[in-house]
């Protein structure tokens, strides 16, 4: 049952050149056929985590370990990174309008990625591009390949983006808020597509702020708060019974779509501390309703149940 671990982040720490830590301690795993949702609010470091896996953060100092298919990525030469990017792992972004180059056709941009990694002729690359677009549900893929990004709808653009990401058959697909810029009905289409990709055996890492999106597309979830993973586990278990007070508060803050309408939504008082002013102890302590004296020492992310890990003193044995 235990599938092969595709990506393993171990105590990933990321800091600015002036020593401010953006990511304090991120540890997580993605297995083949798994989709890991990385959830957090803006500034939590969820996108930074994704970018550091892709090695797209020049100028930041990373320590710890990023292992992809058993190979350590930190300290890799730029040339070797490049061979991985787009081939072994690929990424899709929030806004497919700005993520594509506006002045070249969609097809040309997908062809480019194929030809960057494989020695194929233009004609072969285009044939593959068209086939991919078709598989991603783009109607009339041959014509769509000749169009420019602004000529396609938001949903089709994101499908094209996914087609480009999958063009070299990556083992890992990282999706950074892939549906935030889309309408709900189109979002549902794209999420369905991501589920299919996951089922086809690739590992997916989905960065999002939306617990609902995670619940419906992911198998596992990691909740990030202020540069740390505070809770991790299988989606169903975490949604049904969140352990960390932050996860609980995050789920409660979503207005319900059925049942009685509450007079006031539960909220989290205050706001996350800035990277240069993080508390010594538990990062969530200043906003936590269960705060107690031993929160002054930062709790480690520990396994408390089968497959579930949480960083909170409430679950100390």
């Amino acid at each position: 049952m235990e599938a092969e671990v595709l990506l393993k982040l171990h105590h990933l720490h990321l800091e600015l050149s002036n020593g401010t830590a953006l990511l304090e301690d991120v540890s997580l795993n993605v297995r083949r056929g798994d989709a890991l949702g990385v959830v957090g609010e803006s500034g939590s470091g969820k996108s930074l985590t994704a970018m550091s896996v892709m090695g797209l953060l020049p100028g930041l100092r990373a320590s710890g370990s990023i292992r992809f298919e058993g190979r350590e990525l930190l300290g890799l030469k730029d040339r070797e990174w490049r061979r991985l990017r787009g081939a072994g792992m690929a990424m899709i972004f929030q806004d497919p309008m700005t993520a594509f180059l506006p002045v070249r056709s969609i097809g040309a941009q997908i062809d480019e990625q194929i030809r960057l990694h494989e020695r194929v002729s233009r004609r072969e690359a285009r044939a593959r591009t068209v086939a991919l677009l078709g598989r991603m549900g783009v109607p009339d893929p041959e014509a769509a390949a000749k169009r420019y990004p602004h000529q396609l709808s938001g949903g089709l653009r994101q499908r094209a983006m996914i087609a480009m990401a999958l063009s070299c058959g990556p083992a890992l697909l990282i999706a950074d808020e892939p549906t935030t810029a889309l309408d709900v009905t189109v979002q549902a289409q794209i999420l369905t597509l991501l589920c299919e990709i996951r089922d086809s055996g690739a590992g997916v890492m989905l960065i999002t702020h939306d617990m609902g999106v995670v619940a419906q597309t992911c198998t596992h979830v990691a909740v990030v708060y202020s540069g740390l993973v505070v809770e991790q586990g299988p989606v169903a278990a975490v949604m049904a019974r969140p352990l960390h007070p932050y996860t609980q508060a995050l789920l409660e803050a979503i207005p319900p779509l059925d049942g009685p309408r509450p007079d006031a939504l539960p909220t989290i008082p205050g706001r996350p501390s800035a990277p240069d002013a993080r508390p010594e102890g538990c990062v969530f302590a200043p906003r936590c309703r269960f705060v107690r004296p031993d929160c002054a020492v930062r709790p480690a992310l520990r396994e408390v149940e089968e497959g579930r890990r949480v960083a909170c003193v409430l679950y100390d044995a």
Partner: peptide
């Protein structure tokens, strides 16, 4: 600084 340049890097372009 544009997003599309980030995409180009993510594609593995040198």
């Amino acid at each position: 600084g544009e997003d599309s340049i980030r995409t180009a890097r993510a594609k593995g372009a040198g």
